[in-house]
Design a binder for these strands. Structure first.
Lengths: 193, 193
DNA sequence: TTTATATATGAACAAATGTTCACGTAAATA
DNA sequence: TATTTACGTGAACATTTGTTCATATATAAA
């Protein structure tokens, strides 16, 4: 009575539709049509279109936050912590690429007060990473650099990953992906480091 | 009769509105209201909402392509070429942050056949960068790595820049920004390269 | 079997949206 | 000045959209 096959199918279809057409362009009627039933029935699965968006976005955001929290609580040095942040980012993205795509592409469609809440939480996540980088710079583990720029650049370099899993563009092996990204973020592309 | 002050104001307002609310959420009436005139008058400035989107996106895309083309035609080595690609990316972004934000955030709202054209051209740009990286790997200038991943990661690490210019988040000095990004992409964050 | 819960229908709604048309007024050009 | 071009109004339009309601059927629990 909790997780019926119907519900699973419903949400799978919805995620794909939103990914293909975008949240705003995906109408309740689109969803119904894709599932071969009538519009009204959509409301037996979700309370509203906005609620659907909020649930997915905040659930996914929470996953990222929880992972970050555990890493920060550990006794690892900053560079090892950064490794784990990257690793957790890849793990979540490869596990739930559609949800991550939704988070990245559709957060702008949140309405207040959800939008503000989202932005605050995102800022909090970014700040934690920034302090981690500053910490590492002080300990001479990381190059001295503008912490804000470094934070945004590192996060940006991870934010495209969901695409590689949602395209015909052959999905990558997560282990190999992690190796490549760790090398890039830690050592860059240059051969003579 | 070509570039009146009215037209300039119109497009400035439109770009800001779209950036704030998103393309789909920005209605013709929103635009009219922001400019203190009636909806019908919007159609004296643009033929349609879609045409507005297409014009901005393709014009901006062309700027990036033209810059890439000039760099590839030069006799620089791959690593110097990459430096120039990054440099041109930053130059265009800091010169037209709203247009770049539009390109990055709203291309999904293109309709066929514009959407397909956009994707093909984007792929072409990515391929040029990828071949540049492969070339550099062969010449031992770049680390050996998966060229697709490297391409996407480098581009992703540049695709957030417009935000830093459109937030209260103090706009950065483009020269310093370029320095930081070159260091990151070429040598990463690690102190002992 | 009876009862409750999950899933489905069809019609209707109010609001929002892109666009058009016929018609004015202001501004620039001849 | 006369005339073309740029800028503006008001009303109306056909669609689309999210959502609700009353009601029906299937499925599972009692």
């Amino acid at each position: 009575m909790k997780n019926s096959a119907k519900k699973e199918r419903f949400f799978a279809v919805v995620l794909k539709l939103i990914h293909r057409k975008g949240f705003k362009a995906t109408t309740m009627r689109d969803i119904a049509q894709e599932l071969n039933f009538e519009v009204a029935n959509v409301y037996n699965y979700i309370p509203s279109k906005q609620a659907l968006l909020e649930t997915y976005i905040f659930d996914t955001q929470n996953e990222f936050h929880d992972a970050m929290e555990l890493i920060l609580e550990s006794s690892y040095a900053p560079d090892e912590k950064l490794r784990h942040v990257i690793s957790s980012y890849i793990r979540i993205t490869t596990k739930r690429p559609y949800e991550q795509a939704l988070l990245v592409n559709e957060w702008r469609n949140l309405k207040e007060p959800g939008l503000q809440r989202f932005l605050e939480r995102r800022k909090a996540y970014e700040n934690k990473l920034m302090w981690l980088l500053e910490d590492g710079m002080e300990q001479q583990l990381f190059k001295s650099a503008d912490p804000k720029i470094a934070t945004q650049t590192i996060l940006a370099s991870l934010r495209w990953l969901h695409n590689s899993y949602l395209q015909d563009d052959a999905p990558k092996n997560p282990i190999e992906l992690e190796k490549q990204l760790l090398t890039f973020i830690f050592n860059g592309v240059s051969e003579n480091g």
